[in-house]
């Protein structure tokens, strides 16, 4: 179909010759990872409804390579935490994070997940970064679908530029150790 405006992802920097293309492994892996992020929606409240809108026809998150919503943590790359996480819920969130295989990324969507939001109470966890490391924070109460899409695109940038060795680095291990993971 010639009338569709399909936009292909640009290839990474490299040397092009006849019949070959040479580039860095890092870039290729980053490119592949960034454009096929499988989200695991951990939707608890209002932001989950906005995520539904993000997935639905109008905003269509599938355009960014996230067509398949993976409800199994084992096959997911990006954990999207949407909504209030209470203290009762925190161990479950942590367990889900532990079940994901490396490399894994976390987007914290909405004020509640980022900081507890308006619910500064005895029963609410004041930000999910108290229990798991977070890569991208999306503010808003709830954020608009555009903001959620923007958060995913920010994460794609991170993923694209991540070294393939990062997950084995002592810094990363230290980070996990600080969360007792």
């Amino acid at each position: 179909m010639s009338d569709t405006k399909t936009k292909m992802v640009a290839p990474p920097e490299g040397v092009v010759g006849e019949g070959f293309f040479a580039t860095k492994l890092n870039d290729v892996v980053g490119l592949a990872r960034a454009n096929s992020l499988w989200p695991l929606p951990f939707a608890t409240s209002c932001c989950g409804i906005e995520f539904m809108a993000t997935m639905a026809s109008h905003y269509d998150l599938a355009r960014f390579g996230s067509e398949r919503v993976s409800f199994s943590p084992r096959q997911a790359d990006m954990l999207m935490v949407m909504g209030t996480i209470s203290k009762k819920m925190a161990p479950i969130l942590r367990q889900v994070y532990e079940q994901m295989s490396e490399p894994r990324w976390v987007i914290s969507v909405g004020a509640c997940a980022c900081s507890g939001g308006v619910f500064d109470t005895y029963s609410v966890l004041q930000g999910i970064d108290k229990v798991i490391p977070v890569d991208v924070y999306v503010p808003g109460c709830p954020p608009r679908p555009e903001q959620i899409v923007d958060g995913v695109m920010q994460l794609q940038e991170l993923v694209k530029n991540e070294s393939v060795r990062r997950r084995n680095s002592p810094e990363y291990k230290e980070l996990l150790a600080s969360y007792n993971l």
Binding site: T44, I49, I92, V118, F119
Partner: peptide, 30 residues
């Protein structure tokens, strides 16, 4: 139940009337 218990009733006892509206939004958010 109670996995997203946010203590609405406790918060309402500590907020002026016009600020409680913000809480009611987040009850049945549909």
């Amino acid at each position: 139940v109670g996995y997203i218990h946010r203590a609405f009733e406790k918060i309402s006892e500590n907020r002026p009337f016009y600020q409680i509206n913000v809480l009611t939004d987040r009850m049945n958010y549909c």
